[in-house]
Design a protein around this nucleic acid. Structure first.
Lengths: 331, 331
DNA sequence: TTGAAAGCGCTAACAA
DNA sequence: TTGTTAGCGCTTTCAA
């Protein structure tokens, strides 16, 4: 790979002048610029981002770090895409990692981000990783939290209003006349999961309806626990007439369980899930969901990070985007 | 961020010695190692991957570049995950980019990869980008192609046997007694799409069945063209009794079109798609598909790249993994 | 076993 | 407007 030096030699100018041409300095004669550019062209020269990052301590490195639980979850893919589109528009590249919500992986990748001196990191922290995230923030790394919040620090955050989203779903179910509404909740260690449960409870409270603790089960956001817990629920002597699943995978699991028992949806059991996905419409029946604006979450987070990089003194933003209740045929 | 120098000062040794400790050289006294490690610990020192990449021209940079069309396609997410799991196991980080199959984006990201001096790049080339990909390969960058092949170079490639996969689907349909089988094909510019069409044709040929050109339509791998083309097909005076869609999105689009006309599946129209996805089982009816081993493709490609890095003289591998026909309820 | 010093490719301060 | 030079954090000879 040709270096600055090669270009300098070929063009007959110094490396400083070549550097100026690259960086678009206006202190270069047009004719100089032209011959330098010609030299770069003929060598197929490309400035090394690595050398640049090493040197230019103040400036932008044009590299973002993104750590998500699992890119195979459409919600994460949407967030990643939102981030990447903003990044690309600003000529940033993205190091994307999957943490599986495992502390060890998240810590490893956080270290990678530091070691790569990325400009900033976007991630949804989980409870266990808070310490590692906190440490990175304290070390001065710009961080934007998405989807999940963290306590004890002031840091840019883009969340979805999970309480409102869950409440809207339950409100609708109650309006439909349901009183025995089950919730397949997510892990208590994840803040969005706790919030969705709170929305569930709030809806009951406002409607002056009692919650049957037997109808509230906790899964781990996978399809298999969704199925298993729905089966438990349907086995109850007094089973629920409606089920609210706290994420996309568990909703599909619940759907499978209901089908397996040949129950009609929504006549025998109504079903509503949190998280929309490209095939929700084509399910049997088309699944009603609370749709989070995941793509916008990604976009907003990336923009927030970029803004912070160009202006570190900006006040901290804590954004909360609104989910949308999409009624299809399952309730 | 603390540097080598800081550690050297604190520990009282030179930067060379500290470097040796970091790199696990055996030419360091245990007691020296211990005090250096203590210094690193107390400073929270992390070697800069950037500086290391700049200096160490021969060695591994522990950074991979991956360029995929769109991470929101589950197939790409699976490939990405396969790559990442192998990368993580070997302590590599991954720069992941979405090209949207656009030449401009692919070129930009290819430049980024060079500029970041990644160890190697994994990508599915599209026809237009071949020149850019070829250039990168010629510049000496290790490249592994996935999913799509390229002509005119010897380069490591991991493909899926699309011809066999498509043929298996059509064979099955023919066995079921179908003769008017439609194909919703993908763009001719993408090699896997051409291969799937070839599989379709081959099945007809072997069965001594004529292909009605009216039943072969070309879409662009999106849900909307899948729907539109399926509608065209169903509007025919002599409509098909079975439809084969060349990818997941178009299959779902076709499913929607069939539902919209209240046709029964598979009684009125049988449907089979290429590409499996997490919700195919929960569709109405559960969708029969040709499943590509996308996760394995990713894993294999990453392993191939890692092998090549550690041994550049390895012979070129051209692997072709087998897809699997998964029969559910739609045919 | 350890250290001094060169240099990877670049930016930026200073000089001319 | 252009060039010289120091130095970013590291690895790697070469010497001690």
């Amino acid at each position: 790979m040709p270096s600055l030096n090669d270009v300098a030699k070929l063009s007959g100018y110094s490396i400083a002048t070549v550097s100026r041409v690259i960086n678009g300095s206006d202190k270069v004669t047009p004719s100089t610029r032209e011959s330098v550019e010609k030299a770069m062209e003929s060598l197929g020269y490309l400035p090394s981002r690595v050398a640049r990052r090493l040197r230019q301590k103040g400036g932008l490195r044009h590299l973002l770090g993104v750590i998500l639980p699992n890119i195979q979850n459409p919600i994460n893919a949407e967030i990643a895409r939102g981030i990447e589109d903003i990044a690309y528009a600003n000529r940033f590249a993205v190091i994307l990692c999957n943490s599986d919500d495992k502390y060890e992986k998240e810590k490893f990748y956080l270290d990678v981000m530091r070691a790569e001196s990325v400009d900033g990191v976007i991630l949804p922290p989980n409870q266990e990783s808070n310490a590692a995230v906190l440490e990175v923030i304290e070390k001065g790394m710009p961080v934007v939290l998405v989807d999940r919040a963290i306590r004890g620090v002031q840091v840019d955050t883009v969340e979805v209003d999970n309480v409102i989203g869950a409440k809207a779903a339950i409100d609708h179910l109650i309006q439909l006349g349901h009183t025995r509404i089950a919730m397949i909740a997510g892990p208590g260690s994840i803040s969005n999961s706790r919030q969705r449960k709170r929305g569930f409870e709030k809806a009951f409270k406002e409607a002056n309806l009692p919650i049957d603790p037997e109808l509230v089960r906790t899964g781990d956001y996978t399809q298999s626990t969704g199925r298993a817990l729905a089966e438990e629920l349907l086995d109850l002597t007094s089973p629920p007439t409606a089920v609210f699943a706290s994420n996309n995978f568990m909703a599909v699991g619940a759907l499978e369980a209901i089908h397996k028992r040949n129950l009609r949806i929504p006549e025998d059991v109504a079903l509503i899930g949190f998280d929309d996905f490209p095939w929700a419409e084509s399910l049997d029946p088309p699944l009603s969901v609370v749709k989070q604006p995941a793509y916008e979450v990604g976009q907003t987070a990336a923009q927030l990070l970029l803004d912070r990089l160009s202006n570190p003194d900006l006040p901290i933003s804590k954004l909360r985007l609104s989910p949308e209740l999409i009624l299809r045929k399952s309730c």
